Amino acid sequence: MSGDYTAERFAAVLDEHGDTMVLDREGEATTITLKGKRIPGTTVAIGGSAKQEQFDVKIAPTAILASTWTLKEPRRTDGILVDGKKRAVLEATPYKDSGVLCGYFLKVAG
């Protein structure tokens, strides 16, 4: 029961306090609009004088599970629109409580 409660609260808090983001995937005909919460990160040098932001984003699985996407979880090759800027998903780590999927922590860059 605790896992179900955690999943509901995780999604509810993101719905209320999160920002609208758009997840996209090559090969899928649609994008997924969802609520997420950006967690401050760092600026990383990528060569020469070029730098990019790298940070984490919390998302609930609700919108992805309701989508028409073939694979119902975020992947390393996905893109996500955060703060009006397209970012690359570097990692997608599931967050579970008592075996229940509550959300994902995405490491993004761009």
Rank of each mutant, 00 (worst) to 15 (best):
R9A: 11
L65C: 07
I64S: 04
A63V: 01
E73T: 13
R87Q: 13
G36T: 01
K37M: 15
D97E: 15
M1W: 12
D78Y: 08
I80H: 05
A60D: 06
V44E: 11
L23K: 02
K37F: 10
I46Q: 05
L23D: 00
I80K: 01
G47F: 09
D78W: 01
E91W: 07
K72R: 09
E73M: 11
A7W: 01
T62A: 12
T6A: 14
V44Q: 10
T68A: 15
D78P: 00
G48Y: 06
R9T: 15
E28G: 07
A7E: 04
G41L: 06
D24G: 14
E26M: 11
A88K: 14
V89Y: 04
A29K: 14
I39A: 07
I64R: 02
W69F: 10
Y104C: 01
K86R: 14
P94G: 01
T33R: 09
L14S: 05
S2R: 15
R76F: 11
L106V: 02
G47Q: 05
S2Q: 15
V100F: 00
R9H: 13
L65D: 03
K96T: 15
T93G: 02
L23E: 03
D19P: 04
D19I: 08
S67N: 03
T68S: 15
I32T: 06
G27I: 03
I39T: 04
L34V: 05
T6E: 10
D15F: 10
T42V: 14
A45E: 08
T77N: 14
I39R: 12
A12S: 15
L14C: 08
T68F: 04
K72A: 12
G48A: 07
T33S: 14
C102N: 06
A7N: 02
R75H: 14
T70S: 15
G103D: 02
W69I: 09
T62H: 05
M1S: 15
K96H: 10
P94N: 01
E53I: 02
T43M: 13
K35T: 03
L14F: 07
K72G: 10
I39Y: 06
T6Q: 10
V57R: 02
K58N: 11
A29H: 11
L90N: 06
T43W: 12
D15K: 13
T31C: 06
P40T: 05
E16F: 04
